[in-house]
Write a protein that binds this DNA or RNA. Structure first.
Lengths: 337, 337
DNA sequence: CTGAAAGCGCTAACAG
DNA sequence: CTGTTAGCGCTTTCAG
């Protein structure tokens, strides 16, 4: 008999070793309550001794479900997704689901369609934490929950869980107004959250009877874009004493623009970021920022997903979580002139 | 024609629609050359019309290989992995392999063992871009390549591809020495790369006949740790005019410590980071940093993986890529006293 | 509660 | 080049 290299033990081997039938092993694996204690232990012992690991592929094929949910991230470079993912997993894991993550940018770079990948993988559901191209989600059979953003790429019946970006920007702006600032600018950029944040800023300004000043509408949301938008703002509008940036990275860009012009933060100009990323907490930056509670958003999205899986025909679930302003050292009362 | 709900089309449906046998469809899928042009087109048309997607699960089960490689990341918060992953995928994708990514931190948080997950998934190989706990890699049947670090968690026969951290730190230190600095400190931290970087720093200092000053050996490698180590260095060693930080994030921590002490960068103290992360390139920071070429490391690791898959018994492959110093605005000639 | 039997959708080894 | 034949390892009826 040829010495087989390492024939992975199968459920069959486990059954034999434990002296039971394969079905019983399968039941134990799935945690069925209809198994006697003695047999369960025998099976578990056999599994342990053999180093047996159930084959996902076989299980998926037989059960027609993978217990895997695909998570679509926009860009691994934007650390925003980490907390979101942690939140998702905090409820998906205990429920026995596995998260499979893909990055839109990376997939685009290799000319792949991540949605196709997930479909080939037979994911049971999709979490979209990105703004997919319109139509990219068409024909996905699985349930979809859009997390962290409110743009559904044509998936009209998708569930949505996101932070209330509009409210977040309003909080930031009101904080500045409360500190006595009157000429407050906003750095925006092309993106779903960006549009909502801008609206929040404008609403707060209008409510206080102040004139809005927005720059960056034609740009993106990177550090570079933040720098450019801040330059436009500072050079175009006189007497700005406070800035609401579209996100933390843009705020760091603004910091450079301010320093270039000899304006100190927060003595001369106050600055608020958005996302409360690790960046904002760095001692060297100490950015006041809006915490969107992404972790909670992730957890809520996962709960929505689970309930959708149970009730495929329930009406779309739409949930907006309230953000919170984290005040650090980049904002201060307006200098009394 | 009855409107079928959505029984995913199978290879069988495709065959029928194209008027060929299932085997032929399978051949087309695998891109076999032994198929006539006409039939290939018929099959492709049928696939298109039906919206057919091959089932990974079935393919994996039947072929006993998943064409998937598991990639173990240390922490999604550390953006270092993004380029590494991009490099990996740039060669894995064209070869028909899929990368499945797991984060050690996240998995630990949910009490999961990522290696187990990959094994259950039947990955064909493992890329370890992290420092796994000793023994965590025991009993993995699949080939392992350690990427980006040189610590093999007990996987003695693993292939290794990494940046030459020792050389990187030497380059950084020599750059500073070349600028006329004599009292140069180093901020280290507990980590594999950290140890190598420290050695590089010490070697360069010794070669120049300078006394080393290292702090942070008991800490980690975060911004906070960098701040603490910098405080220790500045308060413990008089006249430091340059600092080699263990990484960029630590360098940002050091920036805070320097500012606290009224020391300006680079006029009074020069600072070098490591990793050339996006952080270093921010206009507001402009950190001179060591670029480890992670993208290239990733690509090389993937190549090593592919060749290992072809030659399971080849001797271990060990490859160290040379890093490069990126000079920005945080370093300047030592003030002539 | 347990065992037997029938596939899930695909690949692979052959014989036409 | 094509069709047939077996399974891959597991879940799932369905009888015992």
């Amino acid at each position: 008999m040829p010495a087989d290299a390492s024939p992975r033990p199968t459920i069959y081997d486990v059954a034999q070793r434990a002296g039971v039938s394969k079905s019983l092993v399968s039941l134990v694996l799935r945690g069925s309550p209809h198994v006697s204690e003695a047999r369960r232990e025998a099976v578990e012992a056999a599994i342990e001794e053999l180093g047996y690991r159930p084959s996902r592929a076989a299980a998926a094929l037989a059960s027609q479900r993978t217990r895997t949910v695909g998570v679509l991230i926009d860009d691994f470079h934007n650390p925003w997704f980490v907390e979101l993912l942690a939140g998702l997993r905090s409820v998906l894991d205990p429920a026995g689901y596995t998260a499979s993550v893909a990055d839109l940018q990376l997939d685009a770079a290799s000319g792949r369609n991540p949605v196709d990948g997930f479909l080939a993988q037979h994911v049971d559901a999709l979490v979209v934490a990105a703004e997919p191209a319109p139509g990219a989600l068409d024909g996905v059979g699985a349930p979809i929950v859009v997390a962290g953003t409110r743009e559904l790429g044509g998936a009209q019946d998708a569930d949505i869980v996101a932070g209330d970006d509009e409210l977040g920007a309003r909080l930031a702006t009101e904080h500045l107004i409360g500190l006595g600032h009157r000429r407050i600018g906003h750095l925006t950029g092309r993106s779903g959250p960006g549009a909502h944040r801008r609206r929040g800023y404008e609403a707060a300004m209008a409510a206080a009877g102040l004139a809005p000043a927005v720059t960056g509408e034609d740009g993106g949301t990177s550090e570079e874009d933040g720098y450019a938008a801040a330059c436009d703002l500072l050079d175009g509008t006189a007497g700005v004493t406070a800035i609401v940036a579209g996100n933390d990275v843009m705020a760091v860009g603004a910091l450079a623009a301010l320093r270039e012009r000899g304006l100190s933060v927060p003595a001369e100009v106050s600055l608020v970021g958005h996302d409360d990323s690790p960046l904002a907490a760095y001692r060297y930056l100490q950015l006041t920022s809006v915490d969107g509670h992404s972790r909670e958003v992730g957890a809520a999205a996962a709960r929505a997903l689970l309930s959708r899986l149970d009730h495929p025909d329930a009406p779309p679930h739409r949930e907006l979580l309230a953000p919170e302003l984290v005040v650090r050292a980049s904002t201060a009362p307006a200098a009394s002139v």
